[in-house]
């Protein structure tokens, strides 16, 4: 469900001109780079950070929705939400596994998440206040993630691209169940419609911030584009998302909370009002309303799961010893 312009990319690299030119030629020829291939240190570092942030976002992203599983209003909705949250966990695992091919261990990545060193998508630092949030998150947050993730299926790094293909196949269910949930509220009682409008009002701006800073303020974006880690700029993806979403909101009879949003015939897309980037950076830096709770929940899960990991390893060792003795 995650998407966000990478925070703090660092494409600096110290290899020889000749090495970099040879690598760039492979990229330009649309060759995929595989785990053991020679690659610039900056390429490796950028990918480890991006895939790591992406994986952490999937894992933390289970929390805002997990919050509503026990309160889902019907078995159908509960089954869908459970399946979706399970998918997010799965997506996190596909991505950790892609990052591990670059020589970073799962333990290191987990440690960086729990210590607050690694970032995750700022969207998950907002609270899920009503049931309608489950619909809006599927429709908008997963919708924004899909916009970002489809081009990542063509990322130059093979394991990341393959993980993204798997993720994208599953993500479509996330968005559709969310939109369907919004439909049932928007076409329901006036109270239900008001509830979904309220959720939309709270999630709209955070959703369009998910694409990251404007291109002019997005450092290191050019290097990621040249290395074909990224295929479209933050603003290009944001524009696509807004253009796709406006008619979907109109169908629901809901109002997007941006008075400046209007069709621009000349560019063939919608213009939107100014984005509050100071809020974005506050939330990225961990000042979102839920930031502390999210990490606390992850720490609790990690600490309380310690005995299970230890027991499983001890059991494996014992079985192994027994097997050896029998041979």
């Amino acid at each position: 469900m995650y998407s966000q312009g990478l925070i703090g990319a660092d494409g600096r690299t110290t290899e020889s001109e000749e090495f970099l030119a040879r690598f760039q030629a492979r990229i330009d020829a649309e060759e995929k780079i595989e785990p053991n291939d020679a690659m610039p240190e900056g390429y490796r570092r950028t990918l480890v950070r991006q895939i790591g942030q992406h994986a952490h976002s999937e894992i933390v992203g289970m929390l805002p929705e997990g919050n509503w599983i026990t309160r889902a209003p019907s078995l159908r909705r509960k089954a869908a939400l459970l399946a979706k949250v399970q998918d997010e966990g799965g997506h996190g695992l596909y991505l950790y596994c892609a990052a591990e091919t670059l020589g970073v261990s799962r333990e290191e990545m987990t440690e960086e998440l729990l210590s607050g060193k690694a970032k995750y998508s700022s969207i998950f630092n907002y609270p899920t206040l009503s049931w309608a949030d489950m619909g809006i998150i599927g429709w908008l947050v997963d919708g924004a993630a899909i916009m970002n993730q489809i081009p990542l299926c063509r990322c130059s790094y093979g394991p990341y691209a393959r993980a993204m293909i798997r993720v994208c196949k599953e993500e479509s269910f996330h968005q559709r169940q969310g939109y369907e949930l919004c439909m049932s509220l928007a076409f329901g009682t006036p109270e239900q419609k008001a509830m979904v409008q309220d959720a939309l009002n709270r999630w709209w701006w955070p959703s369009i911030m998910m694409f990251g800073p404007h291109d002019a303020d997005s450092q290191n974006s050019d290097q990621s584009m040249a290395w074909k880690i990224k295929r479209f700029s933050n603003d290009e993806l944001r524009q696509k998302f807004i253009d796709a979403t406006v008619p979907q909101a109109e169908y629901l009879g809901l109002t997007l909370p941006d008075p400046d949003l209007k069709w621009n015939e000349a560019k063939g897309g919608y213009d939107h009002g100014p984005i509050d980037w100071s809020e974005f950076w506050r939330v990225v830096k961990g000042q979102g309303p839920m930031a502390r709770d999210r990490i606390k929940a992850r720490k609790k899960a990690w600490d309380e799961g310690a005995w299970v990991r230890e027991a499983a390893l001890a059991h494996a060792e014992k079985r192994q010893a027994r097997k050896m003795a029998a041979e």
Binding site: L93, Y94, C97, A98, E100, R106, R162, A163, R166, R309, A312, L313, H315, A316, R319, Q320
Partner: peptide, 8 residues
């Protein structure tokens, strides 16, 4: 398909 961590 990918990889997984597991004790055994």
């Amino acid at each position: 398909a990918g990889s997984i961590h597991a004790a055994d």
